[in-house]
Simulated scan of single mutants.
Amino acid sequence: MPTTARWAATLTLTATAVCGPLGGTALAAPGPGPSALYAPSALVLSVGHGHSAATATAERAVTLNCAPTASGTHPDAPRACAELRETGGDFDALSVRAGAMCTKQFDPVVVTVDGVWQGKRVAYERTFANECVKNSYGMNVFTF
């Protein structure tokens, strides 16, 4: 997928994840409600085969919303959000799963994350040697 199309898809998914809940005929006035207690955490995670996001063939993307509750199209949003909370939103701090065994086959997989984590802009990219290695980081965040 060309880089322009990838960015368009990422921005569309991010806008949907962040602005989707705002749709409706009326919005409540800001006040001390449950949503006022949480900074927004809405991410778009994508994966593709290639050496970098610029050259990768995009395969799939999911949304992950972590505040006020875990939701989105990520297959295990509650656990993925819990892992990110444990690392303070630091994707590099996700540890390798104990006992993970992968082949040394080189078939690069690139993961990108765009959005907002606890009110701060996030743009992350990481290339893994293969799909197994990608899935071994953390328990759920990159498993989609």
Rank of each mutant, 00 (worst) to 15 (best):
M1L: 15
T3I: 06
T3H: 08
T4C: 00
A5E: 15
R6A: 02
W7L: 13
A8D: 09
A8M: 09
A9C: 14
A9Q: 15
L11Y: 06
T12H: 10
T12P: 02
T16H: 03
A17R: 06
G20F: 04
P21T: 01
P21A: 03
P21N: 02
L22N: 15
G23S: 13
T25L: 06
T25F: 01
A26Y: 06
L27W: 13
A28R: 15
G33P: 03
G33Y: 14
P34G: 07
P34Y: 12
S35T: 10
A39Q: 14
S41N: 13
V44A: 06
G48V: 02
H49V: 07
G50Y: 03
G50C: 08
H51I: 09
S52R: 09
S52P: 03
A53K: 09
A53H: 12
A53C: 11
A54Q: 04
T55P: 13
A56W: 04
A56M: 15
T57V: 12
A58W: 14
A58R: 12
R60H: 13
V62I: 12
L64P: 01
N65A: 13
P68C: 06
T69L: 09
A70S: 05
S71K: 03
S71Y: 11
S71T: 13
T73A: 03
T73E: 09
P75W: 05
A77Q: 00
A77L: 00
A80V: 05
A80I: 03
C81F: 04
C81D: 11
A82V: 10
A82G: 15
E83T: 06
L84V: 05
F91M: 07
F91K: 07
A93K: 11
A93C: 10
L94P: 07
L94E: 08
A98I: 02
G99W: 05
G99H: 04
A100Y: 08
Q105A: 12
F106P: 01
D107T: 09
P108E: 11
V109D: 03
V109I: 15
V113G: 00
G115P: 08
V116T: 13
W117C: 04
Q118Y: 01
Q118H: 09
K120I: 10
E125F: 00
R126A: 05
T127V: 03
F128I: 01
A129L: 10
C132H: 02
K134V: 02
K134A: 03
K134I: 01
N135V: 00
G138R: 01
N140Q: 12
V141P: 02
F142A: 08
T143W: 13
